[in-house]
Write a protein that binds this DNA or RNA. Structure first.
Lengths: 233, 233
DNA sequence: CAAATAGTGTCTTTGAGACACTATCGT
DNA sequence: ACGATAGTGTCTCAAAGACACTATTTG
């Protein structure tokens, strides 16, 4: 890829070049986790204008020699020391004035991570103080930079929708978990209570029981399960 | 927005600028229609390198002063003389080498249009010869430029999935339609036959009957319907 | 044994699926 | 009357919803 700039120039010369002034492309990350029985998202406080002091999604510019997925992985690592977690593309935001400085097109991705993993990965830095409940953000209780509140609302909807028909809930748990834990995850994502017996009937084909139990006080211990087939690393 | 370039320069100076050489951003359009009881897509034959002579999705560059949606509308108008039709964002494709000339990130949108409208909008140009069955493309019977076959496969899946639970099928029909017509659309999208009685029970809340009928030969005429509430323009 | 949570059995309700039937047109 | 397509009634079956019950732990 030596002559790339030359090739590009030649290519663009056949167009009205003013029309193809290029926008910047960034990745915005919606890193969701579940803490204290609530859906939380990782935000950073902006230390410069515009929107200085307000909360924003962690983001990175997409490098000219890296794919979108590579940029996402780099962002997850740089902003939250996370590797090997689940993520998926959400939506691409391209309104002209969404960033007052310059034209920025943002590809949003959501990542789901168990709270314990988020804590242990972060190491020194106190990442916990950068977690905010999605509920409070959508209720307008926090000042959000750019169009980030809308992006979070979009991500919240995606999570809720996928909780209806997919195994997305597993992403918030460690490899081994109990069915009451899993049910609670789904209840938080869906925003409603579920019937124990029905939940278990539905989830049964996707879990395999172990011989281990966990005890949480003065009651019957709960059996530990693993996710079936589709192995979680 | 006079001082934009100045502002931008100042902003970028605080970064490693080589890292933020900008990619180009384009829109790729998946214009679907139903013709001869098959799902078709509009493609153009490339008249220059690379992939000269091969088929490609119609696309436009995203102008620096237009939103993604504005670029989509401009593309629909320029490439197929279409206005006021349904479209939605599909996915953003950003592999580094998806275009051999230069780094291009493409935001794909799918648009759905009744075949009759596609024909009448096109006017002079014979747009019909640019329609290809999605089936033949996915079977590998046509040479596709870039990663466009993958993009089409993704769009085909989206259409099929949305046909399962949404009113997307209406977008392929004129304002007034018969239930057998609507059922046929859904059968084509889903790739399977449906039971008449069951289909009508399910669709009933979303249609309102008119007092008009259409007659198609030696059999009972079919009643014309309108889509309920959610008005189609 | 009481309190608390884990886990199961089963009746009800809902909607999808399957199929048989009737209705209305042109010839 | 017939062939063809439009349109309806109803039985079956599977899954979701609701609820009552049993099981196992600690103190």
């Amino acid at each position: 890829m030596k002559n790339k700039n030359e090739k590009e120039k030649q290519f663009l010369d056949s167009y009205d070049s003013s029309k193809f002034e290029k926008p910047s492309v960034t990745i915005d990350l919606l890193i969701f986790t579940i803490k204290d029985n609530q859906l939380h998202i990782l935000l950073v406080e902006r230390d410069q204008m515009p929107f200085q002091g307000q909360l924003a999604l962690p983001g990175v510019f997409v490098g000219i020699e890296e794919s979108l997925e590579e940029a996402v992985k780099r962002g997850l690592k740089q902003k939250a020391s996370l590797t090997d977690i689940y993520f998926e593309q959400l939506y691409t935001w391209g309104d002209v004035d969404r960033d007052p400085r310059m034209r920025i097109i943002s590809v949003s991705y959501m990542a789901l991570v168990p709270f314990s993993q988020l804590l242990s990965s972060a190491g020194e830095q106190n990442i916990e103080q950068n977690l905010y409940t999605v509920e409070s953000i959508l209720a307008g209780q926090e000042e959000l930079a750019f169009d980030h509140r809308n992006i979070i609302a979009y991500g919240r909807e995606r999570v809720k929708n996928k909780a209806e028909y997919s195994l997305i809930g597993f992403q918030f748990l460690e490899k081994k978990f109990t069915l009451p834990q899993l049910q609670l995850i789904y209840e938080i994502l869906l925003g409603k209570q579920l019937y124990k017996a029905n939940f278990r009937k539905k989830i049964k084909p996707y879990v395999v029981e172990t011989e281990e139990f966990v005890s949480t006080g003065a009651n019957r211990p709960s059996k530990l399960y693993l996710q079936a087939s589709t192995n979680k690393k």
